[in-house]
């Protein structure tokens, strides 16, 4: 494997957007050696995904106060500063912090985040549903940066 796209989310409202992005990308033709996985609140298991690949694009929901449906690129280093606060499910930022604390070598990483608004219900908000395609494009662009040019 040359690179892994990891769509992260939960079934609750817009939080599922990372899973939707992974699903849409799975149906597309991707560069050789690129795999896509969807992970429902992976917690520590994210460490296993990160261990398995030299390069990864993480796609996840974000609440930063930006306009709903905005697709943003987050510097991974900004994420890995977060503190471990809760318990059984480690969030993405916490898991990255843990990997850094352990001195593990992280894969080359890009993070695509989609600003969300709904955190409940079974469906995406219109703004976030409309962001799936731009988020897929952003993930592919991030992959392009990670994969050595042929």
């Amino acid at each position: 494997m040359r690179a892994l796209v990891i769509g992260i989310g939960s079934p609750f409202g817009d939080d599922a957007v990372g899973l939707h992005v992974a699903e849409r990308l799975s149906g597309q033709s991707l560069p050789d050696g690129v795999a896509v996985v969807a992970r429902d609140r992976p917690g520590l298991s994210l460490l296993d995904d990160l261990e398995s690949t030299p390069a990864a694009v993480i796609v996840d929901a974000l609440r930063s106060g930006a306009q709903a449906g905005s697709v943003l690129r987050i510097p991974p280093a900004a994420l890995a500063r977060d503190r471990l606060t809760s318990s059984h499910t480690l969030r993405v930022a916490e898991t990255l912090s843990l990997a850094v604390a352990l001195g593990r070598r992280l894969p080359a990483l890009r993070v695509v985040a989609i600003e969300i608004v709904l955190t409940q219900g079974e469906t995406l908000s219109p703004e976030v549903a409309a962001a799936i395609e731009p988020a897929c494009e952003a993930a592919l662009a991030a992959l392009g940066e990670l994969l050595p040019r042929a």
């Binding site: 471990l84 916490e94 843990l98 604390a101 352990l102």
Partner: peptide, 9 residues
């Protein structure tokens, strides 16, 4: 210590 990350460090 504050959390598991501090333990890991």
């Amino acid at each position: 210590l504050d959390d598991g990350i501090a333990i890991a460090r």
